[in-house]
Every structure is written in structure tokens, then in C-alpha cells.
Nucleic acid binder design. Structure first.
Length: 431
RNA sequence: UCCGCGAUAGCUCAAUGGCAGAGCAUUCGGCUGUUAACCGAAGGGUUGUAGGUUCGAGCCCUACUCGCGGAGCCA
């Protein structure tokens, strides 16, 4: 049997149809019951008049608990007052399975309670809107790279050693080979892919065992990492700004309704058009000085520093050429000033912080070896990576975009925990 | 790891050291167009845990547990 969804009701005006779903909320007034039906595609008010249904059905419509699964048959009517523009004049209601004492009521709830009930919280209109926008962002990411000749090449999740040598990693036993670690980045593997296929991207979950406890951190998060052979830092920035513009404009075009549910100020998103401002680390430090923010030259930018810098602009800002000491070993140094790394961070507007980190990679074998020793990394673990410089090395660059921070920014959310179906955080790994 | 804040009904929150309260949810009743509907009634409590001060502690003190916000680190 053909299923009919609420989002398609416009095709069925004045027809009698059957919808399946869950009771989102209900109201009553004497001999009329109003049932708000939720079917995953949208919400619809079903009107149950006492005279239009059997006494048993009228009685049932009064007894239904929130989130009971039901089947409603009725005539589709145009109703300008209703959100979505339609209403169902019910002639029959069938109970599929009852729901008693549903814990999430239409009133306010605290964060802890909602996170404990995350498996049910996903049913709310707001959470559904976030998940649909996340999906649209992921689709935009795949479309963007697929349309530009990139090949998807995912990196392994279990890795033999730290990719960057800095972050704390989750560790697990790995048969006779000792320890394995959950990946913190697919980048080194993407570099191997770029040497094979020219333009690649990896897209998957990454893990950090850092004890970070802020609105921008998860222990498990998703990252997309393009890597392109023969791209220098400027090409990398060109790619990043075209990419972000494409993502934001795709969501604006196709998820206007969901952004409205979230009460997102879309004028802020409409401003996200190329070109993005590009400033050097030195210029960023000057902005901090101008705003009387104490800052020691040579340090990495902190969360408040990033907020101050990004608040100077109405679109994402690209900060490039950081002191190489605070950046990863694989980043190429600026030939014009070897104290600087050819790195770029893209800071989202409105205080959402760093959403992209990228760089041109060190392509010289001897310099890369030097870096590995400077960072006291075990050379044997990176022999395969060094091979990429031994056999036809070329300039190349890439970046990583954090999906959850991007979703939080585009949706205008307070915390990344709402951007992923089931968040993993330092003090929570359930449900 | 560090700094700050918090924990009272299923949920969100009140309660000068002196009777444990409200709204929502639940149950019952009312209303023929409700929009987080509304109106009336009822049930619902070991005040996070363990000690201490006091005639008397939800409230003051100590420790612990859990949570929230932030720092560092990062996307």
C-alpha cells in the first residue's frame, strides 16, 4: 500500500486518506478533539468532531497519551490558519500502540533530563529540524566534492599511533600487536590518497580523549578532510571559502522551514558569501591589541581571542601563517619566514570559533624528518608517511571541517551536544 | 586537571533557621475551533548521600556523589 506523508498533503486536498504516526499533542473543547499528528515528515492537526466518528473512536481520541502510535483517516482540508496550510477532518482513529506517561511534556525541561531521554527528545520538532539541517549539510559536503572531481577515500578508525602526537587518544587492545588507538584525524591517510588520486576527501568519526568540557567539544565528532595535490596555502583557502559558502547557501535554500523552527536569524547566514577576509596571525594579534585583550605573541589563539577577532567581520574569517611552534609537525614553513607555518584556521562568525583547520603540508623529506625529531615522534611509525615524500613528492594542502561545530553555527545553537543524534562527552556516553 | 554555580513532587522551579508549595504532566469532571488551549477537583515528597551545629535544618558547617558553565587543549 502506498504511504502518504504529511509533507505531501497538498496533493490530496479534498481526498479521504489515512496517515500513520504518533500523537504529538492534543487539545479538546467540548465535542471536538484536536490531535496533532507527527509522522516524521511534519506535523498536522487532525480534527475529531463528535458527530463525525463513532462513540468508541471519540472516546479513544480523548484517552490517547502523548506519543501513542495511531492511524488517522480523514479528509484533507485547506486551512490557512494551520502551520503547513492543511488540516485533516477525521472520520476514524485507530490505536496502533499506546503510550502512557511520556516523560517529555510540552513544558520546559533541563539539559540533564533531556540528554538522559535523548532517544525520545529526538522526536521533538526542534531536534528533528536540527537533524534535517545536519543531513542537508552532509549532503552539501558530498555534493560539493563529488561535483569537483574529488574521490571519497575514508581513513581507518583504528590506528597504530598518534597522528599528530599531541592529543590524548582513546586506547584499545589489538591482539598480538599491542595497542591501537581511535583516530583523531584521517589527514595523513588522505595525503596518501591525494598522491594516488589527486583530489580526495575522507569523512568519518574522529575521537579525542581530551578532558575538554565546553559547549564546543565532544569526545566523538565527525570531520570531513579534503586533501589536494599541487594546492598551496592560497589554493587551500580558496577551496575552504567556496566550500563554506556552498554549504551555507544550500541550507538556506532547502531548509528554510527548519531554520524558522529554530528561530535562526538568517540574515547572518545570507552574508556568508565569497570572498572571506584573510588576515595573518600578526594582523589578528593587532586586532587583539586594539581591543585591549592581553595576549602573548607566539601563543595559539584562545576561545575568547577567536570570538573577538571573528566579531570584527560579518562572515567567516581566515587567519593564516601561525607561529610554527604551536602548530603540527606536518605543516610546511613559510619560505619567506621560517618561524611561521603555512597554516590557516577559519573562524565562524557569532562566536562559534574554529570550524576549519588546514595547512599546506611539508613536502620535503629532510625537513619533515627534522620536524618529526623536533616533536620527539617515533620515526618508525611514520615511515609509510615519509614514503610519500620519497616517491614523487609534490606540494599539497588540505583542511578539516568539524561537522558538529558547523551545524551548531548554522542552526544558531548554544551547544554542540544537540547537533549529533547521540552525543559522546567526557561525562556522558548514554543513551 | 583547575575556577565558578547548582541538586526540593515525573518535569520546571518557589519556600527570613519555625506547618513542604506552585505551574506543567497524571487521574476525574466541564466546554462544538483549540494553537505550550482553558475552567474545576484529586493523587503525588526519606528536600542528592553521609556526618555535624541547633530547642528546631530544605536553609548554616564539613566531606562525598552527580550535573551545569568556563579555562587549558582542540574541530
Amino acid at each position: 500500500m502506498q504511504k502518504i506523508y504529511i509533507k505531501d498533503l497538498g496533493q490530496y486536498v479534498d481526498q479521504t486518506i489515512t496517515l500513520k504516526g504518533w500523537l504529538y499533542n492534543k487539545r479538546s473543547s467540548g465535542k471536538v478533539r484536536f490531535i496533532i499528528l507527527r509522522d516524521g515528515s511534519g506535523l498536522l492537526q487532525c480534527v475529531v468532531f463528535k458527530g463525525n466518528v463513532t462513540p468508541e473512536v471519540f472516546e479513544l481520541s480523548d484517552k490517547l497519551g502523548q506519543e501513542s502510535s495511531i492511524e488517522v483517516t480523514g479528509k484533507v482540508k485547506v486551512e490557512p490558519r494551520a502551520p503547513g496550510g492543511f488540516e485533516l477532518d477525521a472520520v476514524d482513529v485507530k490505536l496502533i500502540s499506546e503510550s502512557k506517561d511520556y516523560p517529555i511534556t510540552p513544558k520546559e525541561h533541563g539539559v540533564e533530563f533531556l540528554m538522559d531521554k535523548r532517544h525520545l527528545w529526538l522526536r521533538s520538532n526542534r531536534q528533528a529540524a536540527i537533524l534535517k539541517i545536519r543531513h542537508r549539510i552532509v549532503k552539501a559536503i558530498r555534493d560539493f566534492f563529488d561535483d569537483r572531481g574529488f574521490t571519497l577515500m575514508d581513513a581507518p578508525i583504528l590506528t597504530p599511533a598518534a597522528c599528530e602526537g599531541t592529543s590524548t587518544l582513546f586506547e584499545t587492545d589489538y591482539f598480538e600487536l599491542g595497542k591501537a588507538y581511535l583516530t583523531q584525524s584521517g589527514q595523513l591517510y588522505a595525503e596518501a590518497g591525494a598522491m594516488a588520486l589527486g583530489k580526495v576527501y575522507s569523512f568519518g568519526p574522529t575521537f579525542r580523549a581530551e578532558k575538554s568540557k565546553t559547549r564546543r567539544h565532544l569526545t566523538e565528532f565527525w570531520m570531513v578532510e579534503p586533501e589536494v595535490a599541487f594546492n598551496d596555502l592560497n589554493d587551500d583557502m580558496d577551496l575552504a571559502e567556496e566550500f563554506l559558502e556552498y554549504i551555507v547557501q544550500s541550507v538556506l535554500k532547502d531548509r528554510a522551514e527548519e531554520l524558522k523552527v529554530l528561530e535562526r536569524d538568517t540574515t547572518k547566514l545570507e552574508a556568508v558569501k565569497r570572498p572571506f577576509p584573510r588576515i595573518s596571525y600578526d594582523e589578528a594579534v593587532q586586532i587583539l591589541a586594539k581591543n585591549n585583550i592581553p595576549f602573548d605573541y607566539g601563543n595559539d589563539l584562545g576561545a575568547t581571542d577567536e570570538t573577538v577577532i571573528s566579531s570584527q567581520f560579518d562572515r567567516p574569517v581566515m587567519v593564516h601563517r601561525y607561529p610554527s611552534e604551536v602548530k603540527a609537525f606536518y605543516m610546511k614553513r613559510d619560505p619567506e619566514n621560517p618561524k611561521l607555518a603555512l597554516a590557516v584556521d577559519v573562524l565562524a562568525p557569532e562566536g562559534y570559533g574554529e570550524i576549519i583547520g588546514g595547512s599546506q603540508r611539508e613536502d620535503d623529506l629532510d625537513l619533515l624528518l627534522e620536524r618529526i625529531h623536533e616533536h620527539k615522534l617515533p620515526q618508525e611509525a611514520f615511515e609509510w608517511y615519509l614514503d610519500l615524500r620519497r616517491f614523487g613528492s609534490v606540494p599539497h594542502s588540505g583542511f578539516g571541517l568539524g561537522i558538529e561545530r558547523t551545524v551548531a553555527w548554522i542552526c544558531g545553537l548554544e551547544h554542540v551536544r544537540e547537533t549529533i543524534p547521540f552525543a559522546r562527552m567526557i561525562y556522558r556516553n548514554t543513551p
